[in-house]
Computed example of a mutant assay.
Amino acid sequence: MDIFTAGRDFVRREARLVESRLFATVFEDADPHGVVDALRGYQNADGGFGHGLEPDKRCPDSLALDVEVAFDTLLAAGARDDVMIRRAVDWLGLTANSDGAVSLCAPVVEQYPRAEHISEWTYQPGLNPTAGLVGRLYKLGVAHPWRDRAGAWCAAELAKGLPEDAHGLHEALEFLEHTDDADIDRVRDWLPKLQWFRADAEDPTYGVTPLHLASTPDSFWCPLFTDAQLEAHLDRLVADQQPDGGWAITWEPPGPASTMEYRGIVTVGALRTLKAYNRI
Rank of each mutant, 00 (worst) to 15 (best):
I265M: 06
R21M: 09
I265F: 11
T250V: 02
L75P: 14
R149A: 02
P256F: 08
V268R: 06
E157P: 12
D235E: 05
L230R: 11
E68C: 12
N97W: 00
L230W: 01
G132T: 05
G41H: 15
P192L: 06
A214K: 00
Q43H: 10
A150H: 10
G245T: 13
E157H: 08
G132K: 02
E54Q: 09
R136C: 13
R272G: 01
I3W: 00
V26D: 04
A239F: 00
G93L: 11
S20H: 13
Q111H: 12
R236D: 10
P204M: 01
A64C: 15
W153T: 02
L140A: 14
T130N: 09
A257S: 13
I280A: 01
V108E: 07
T25R: 03
G246P: 06
L104W: 12
V69S: 12
L173E: 04
D227Q: 07
L237K: 05
H144M: 15
D66F: 09
T122K: 08
D9R: 08
N128Q: 13
A239S: 14
A248P: 15
M1V: 05
D235N: 09
H212M: 07
R86S: 12
V89I: 10
V36H: 11
D235Q: 11
E28R: 06
D235V: 14
L230H: 04
V187Y: 09
S219C: 11
W190N: 12
L22E: 01
E177I: 03
G141E: 07
R136K: 14
A257G: 08
R263Q: 04
G52F: 01
G161H: 06
G7V: 09
T130A: 06
F71N: 05
A248C: 13
D61G: 03
A199S: 03
V208T: 13
A96R: 05
H167L: 10
D90F: 14
P55W: 08
L224E: 02
G168V: 03
E171W: 15
Q111K: 15
R13S: 00
G100H: 07
P125F: 03
N97M: 03
L194S: 05
C105G: 07
G52N: 01
P163D: 03
E19F: 06
L65R: 00
G168Y: 00
T226C: 05
V108T: 06
R147A: 14
A228M: 12
T250I: 00
A143L: 13
R198C: 07
R16I: 01
Y42P: 00
T122G: 12
